[in-house]
Every structure is written in structure tokens, then in C-alpha cells.
């Protein structure tokens, strides 16, 4: 009902019907009986069937599956030989180090908040009295990732404001024999090395108290 009101009349008034004439569907006997169209459709199916089957039987058609794996690598003797992973492959996580070898993480909980699988658990701790970082940042007393629960989406790496967590180890989660072995603690995560062979990152870190420290600190009051 609403439709007819809009199409006929409208702003132009009841007598001025305008619009594009719509062609009525053809309802000839051929269309209604459905038979010519069936024959046409069958013809198309048959022609494709013949062509495809002939090319398969005479090996004139590419077989993506067979040819995709038939590319020169015959057999990989894993783990002695490994297929190289792509450059941006997301492998196991690592916690990057600072220059002094301590953990770069400031326990802001961004990663565990961003994690869709909720596989990251962080207990934040304060630096001891007298440490220049105390009052500015905290550090993780525990940093646990359940690698079995992880979906390797990389959101934690995206979320981290200090480049403290990375997935550039190039190592995939290898199978273990119990679930506990997939729970990676802070020391394990810190022991991993990135593909460039370092435990640091290329991004510089400015510690509180350094002259290059950009923000507010005890010496520089704003």
C-alpha cells in the first residue's frame, strides 16, 4: 500500500502520474511451461560438463591442488629442515628487553585488555623505593601468556604502547605433552630472541632521569 502511494501521484498530485513504465513480465506459454528454459539450462550445464571432464581426463586442465604442492620441495625433514615462514609471520610472543636487560613492559595492561582470547595475565608491581622509574611506570611481577588459548591475532602487539611485546620470534607453538607447558611465564617470554637475533627493539627507550626523556620527571617540572 505504501509503495503504491509513493509511485502514483506523490508530490505531482493525483492526476499527474509520472515515472518510468515498467515492462510487464512475459507470460507466454513457453515461459510458463518452464520447458524451453530448462532445455537452455541443461545445455549450458552439459557444455561445461563436457569441456571440464575432457580437460580433466586428458590432463589439459590445471589442478591447483596437485600443482600447488608439486613445486620442487619434495619432502621437508622437520625439524632438521623447516619451511621458512613469511617475513611477517606471527609466531610465539617475546617480551623485549631494555638496554639494561630488564623487561621493557610497563604493565599498562593494554595488551591483556586488547586480547580477544584473554590469554594474557599480568600482575603489576611497583619499582622499589629509590628507583628512578618508581612513580612513573610499573613493571610486571608476573607476565603469563597461555599460548594454547592465544589465537595469534597480533592485537597485543598492536596495542602495546612501548613496543614491549612482539611476535617476531619466527617460532610456531610446538606441541607439548601437557597443557601446563603452554603457559609461558615472564622469564620464558623474555628468553626468546627475535628474528634479527636481538632481544632489544630498534625503537629507542628514554628512561626517566635520562636527559632525552621527553616527558615530566622529577628533575624537569613543568
Amino acid at each position: 500500500m505504501a509503495m503504491s502511494n509513493i509511485v502514483v501521484g506523490g508530490a505531482l498530485g493525483p492526476n499527474k502520474v509520472s515515472g518510468k513504465p515498467v515492462k510487464r513480465p512475459v507470460r507466454s506459454a513457453g515461459v510458463q511451461s518452464y520447458v524451453p528454459e530448462i532445455a537452455k539450462g541443461l545445455g549450458i550445464t552439459m557444455s561445461h560438463f563436457f569441456k571440464n571432464t575432457k580437460e580433466m581426463v586428458l590432463s589439459q586442465r590445471n589442478d591447483p591442488v596437485l600443482e600447488g604442492i608439486d613445486d620442487g620441495i619434495n619432502c621437508i625433514s622437520y625439524p632438521e629442515q623447516r619451511r621458512p615462514y613469511p617475513e611477517r609471520f606471527r609466531g610465539l610472543h617475546r617480551l623485549t628487553h631494555r638496554e639494561d636487560g630488564s623487561v621493557r613492559c610497563v604493565a599498562c595492561l593494554c595488551c591483556s585488555t586488547a586480547c580477544p582470547a584473554q590469554c594474557i595475565h599480568i600482575d603489576a608491581g611497583e619499582y622499589p623505593e629509590g628507583d628512578p622509574r618508581r612513580g612513573y611506570e610499573r613493571f610486571p611481577t608476573r607476565f603469563v601468556i597461555d599460548e594454547l588459548r592465544c589465537v595469534f591475532c597480533g592485537f597485543c602487539v598492536e596495542a602495546c604502547p612501548c613496543d614491549a611485546i612482539r611476535m617476531d620470534t619466527g617460532v610456531h607453538a610446538a606441541p607439548y605433552d601437557s597443557r601446563e607447558q603452554f603457559i609461558y611465564e615472564k622469564d620464558t617470554l623474555m628468553s626468546f630472541v627475535g628474528r634479527d637475533g636481538t632481544q632489544l627493539t630498534a625503537n629507542p627507550r628514554h628512561e626517566p632521569g635520562d636527559s632525552t626523556h621527553p616527558g615530566v620527571d622529577r628533575e624537569k617540572h613543568h
Binding site: K54, E55, L58, S59, Q60, R61, N62, P64, E67, G68, I69, D71, G72, I73, R83, P84, P86
Partner: peptide, 17 residues
């Protein structure tokens, strides 16, 4: 029907690498 061999898999690129 001329068939062209098609190798597009990433594994092939790795093999070349």
C-alpha cells in the same frame, strides 16, 4: 587445448628462496 603449467603457491616461492 593448450595447458599452461601454473605454479603460484607460496611454498614454491619459499623453495626458491
Amino acid at each position: 587445448a593448450e595447458k599452461k603449467r601454473m605454479v603460484v603457491s607460496s611454498a614454491q616461492k619459499f623453495a626458491a628462496a
